[in-house]
């Protein structure tokens, strides 16, 4: 991508009690792109997203740089699309008032105009009879409408960056697709980039331009989403893909052997080495740095030795116990 990055993250490290959970992460976010951050629970993907928003949990310390730092302008230039629409909205105020308050929190706008913008935003996300609906309370909205309302709220000030942390985990496929469609429409309408944190590889395939795969707090692979998901250049990505039922050849699915390391108990060298069928001596001594490979970044000493297709690497790993 030739454009100037919208955000540059360099050597981001996030620690709790001196134990690093995100361990030196660097990436750029480009204008209007959808960057998916992929990985399993505990990989550090949510923390990374929260660091962009300046919303790290209590007790976390972060070092490294995020430039420009938009977190001071949260709500205007960067906004969170919350996972749980119900708890993101106040139960005691009408939905339209909450959207209008979001407008007035970042700009001196007359009350009446803020209200009009709230109604327009609800209308844009497809809430029928928006002027009347704006006076209703969150509990009077259906689950689907609440999801739309929080997307309207996140995009109402036309931010440059939207951050969505597992926005669809709790939803069935039909609702998931609906929410993602509305999010995609609104993102395009306001021209924002989207950082999409998810463990759902189907969502990545359908909605992301680029995918950043994380393992144990580090970048494993970063590149165009369709390439990463069809021809991974890192064994960990290959293992994730191999475990999807759509790639199964028989009833037993390939799995990644073992479990991810707990923070603070990392093995020497590559954090994935104990689970990696390709691991060689150097893997146990030297942690691989992200390096360019075929137009992407991969952090693996032996990416060039991956079989074709890469999921074959895990074909025989059909454990029931990990």
């Amino acid at each position: 991508m030739a454009s100037e990055p919208l955000l540059s993250v360099r050597d981001l490290r996030i620690a709790f009690d001196g134990v690093e959970v995100v361990r030196g992460l660097s990436f750029d976010l480009h204008p209007r792109e959808v960057l998916a951050i992929v990985g399993e629970s505990g990989a550090g993907k949510s923390l990374t997203a929260r660091a962009l928003l300046g919303m790290l949990p209590h007790g976390a310390t972060a070092t490294g740089t995020v430039r420009p730092d938009l977190s001071a302008e949260r709500g205007r230039r960067i906004a969170l699309v919350p996972q749980d629409a119900l708890s993101a909205l106040s139960p005691v105020h009408p939905v339209g008032d909450q959207l209008a308050a979001a407008v007035r929190s970042v700009a001196r706008v007359p009350r009446k105009e803020a209200r009009a913008r709230a109604v327009a935003a609800l209308d844009r996300v497809g809430i029928p009879d928006a002027a009347r609906r704006a006076r209703a309370y969150p509990h009077e909205f259906s689950g689907g409408m609440r999801q739309r309302a929080v997307i309207a709220m996140a995009t109402i000030n036309e931010p440059d960056v939207l951050v969505a942390d597992e926005p669809t985990t709790a939803l069935d496929e039909e609702r998931r697709d609906q929410v993602l469609r509305v999010l995609a429409e609104q993102r395009e309408a306001v021209g924002a980039a989207l950082v999409l944190v998810t463990h759902d590889l189907d969502v990545v395939r359908e909605h992301a331009d680029r995918a950043l795969v994380m393992y144990a707090g580090r970048l494993t692979e970063l590149g165009p989403a369709d390439e990463v998901l069809t021809r991974p250049l890192a064994p960990y990505t290959a293992g994730l893909l191999a475990s999807l039922p759509e790639h199964a050849r028989d009833r037993r699915l390939p799995t990644l052997p073992g479990t991810p390391p707990a923070p603070g108990t990392l093995p020497p060298g590559c954090a994935f080495a104990p689970r990696c069928p390709l691991a060689a001596d150097d893997c146990h001594h030297e942690e691989p740095e992200p390096r360019p490979a075929e137009g992407r970044l991969t952090a693996c000493h032996h990416w060039a030795e991956l079989p074709h297709p890469a999921v074959e690497l895990f074909r025989d790993q059909q454990h029931a116990s990990s």
């Binding site: 037993r252 699915l253 029931a320």
Partner: peptide, 30 residues
Amino acid sequence: PSVRAGVLNLLADLQDELGLGYLFICHDRS
């Protein structure tokens, strides 16, 4: 995904060994 694969494998093993019937409620088509 990888954890899910392991649990599905476990359920498949148990079914083979014990002849269990499964009524399986799931919204994920794949």
